[in-house]
Computed example of a mutant assay.
Amino acid sequence: MLIRLTALAILAVTLMPSLGWAADDLARRPVIVCSTTQIADFARQVVGDRMEVHSVLAAGQDPHLYEKKPGDAQLVSTADLCLENGWHLEGNDWMRKLAEQTGRPLVTCVDGCNPLEVPGVDQAMDDPHAWFSCTNAATYVRNIRNAVIELDPEHANEYRSRAALYLDQLRALNNWIVREISKIPVEERVLVTSHDAFNYFCQAYGLKPATPVGWSTGNEVGAGISPQRRHDTIESIREHGVKAIFVETSVNPTMVRQIAREAGVRIGGELYSDSMGAPGTAGETYLGMMRENVITIVEALK
């Protein structure tokens, strides 16, 4: 018996280095670093537990105003793949600069989407808020799927399967949104929010957007409120008999509340816009964010 135990002990000691190496190898998952919470959610839906997914932005943060922090470069330097929205959603292209600074590969998720144009100082700009159309969200997911398959071709079938399921969920979400928005009288389908984040949503689902601020809440091209835009927003509210207007989770609500008082309408609720909700909230995923936004809009305007 003693001889047998001794032999087993020797075998265990002999195998320990190889077993330890295997454990380390399994723990060394590829890392994806995303600029926004929406993109991070899309990535998690595709990769499951095969990869670590991190978001530079936290819930409720504004990508237009975000300023790089010392720890961001360190986080991005660990990435096997970086994902950005693109079309200058990330104010002054901070995610692209982080990837270039650290020499990490970068995929732009809006590639393949058909852009809406918004006014700029010198020329029209591509509106970066493309994810608010479920059709565009599907393009984001396909871009991410293709990128992770290139990164880890061994598990390509897993990534295709997860992406296919999620694309089915996006199609179901799209159909549900169409049905819900139909509950609002056509003449009252005017969506007034803090800034031009919902143009794709309005185009896809038959609403008219009206905002006092351009596509960006920051100081780069396209940002800013003018007296004329403010006036036009208030006139649109009065002309269409808008019942309610909305604040956004990632934008200071002060201006919208002032416009509501001036136009004599109520605040219909808070919408997730450039960022999703915090963990544990109904808006912590893209599907949840879109669902809660639609419920809030329909309840306020119907």
Rank of each mutant, 00 (worst) to 15 (best):
S273I: 04
I39H: 07
Q169G: 10
A278Q: 12
K68F: 01
D62P: 08
V265Y: 09
D41S: 08
R229N: 11
A282F: 04
R29C: 00
E67S: 14
L207W: 08
L11F: 06
G60H: 04
E292W: 01
S77W: 01
V148K: 06
Q38N: 07
V33S: 06
P227L: 03
C113P: 07
I295H: 13
S161E: 15
L151R: 10
M51E: 03
L65W: 02
I237C: 06
V13N: 00
T139D: 07
T139E: 13
H231P: 00
T254M: 07
G86T: 09
D72C: 09
V56N: 06
N219F: 07
S236L: 06
G218L: 03
K243A: 13
G48D: 09
S182E: 15
G269A: 02
A99W: 07
L271R: 03
S226E: 03
G206P: 06
N136A: 13
Q169S: 15
L207D: 06
L116R: 09
V110A: 04
E188R: 15
P212N: 00
L287N: 12
A147P: 10
G264I: 07
Y205I: 05
E248M: 03
A164I: 04
I149A: 03
L2P: 00
Q169A: 12
D24A: 11
I144K: 09
R44K: 15
P105V: 13
E117M: 06
K69V: 05
L207C: 08
P115C: 05
A99I: 10
E90W: 09
S133G: 10
N157L: 12
G222S: 05
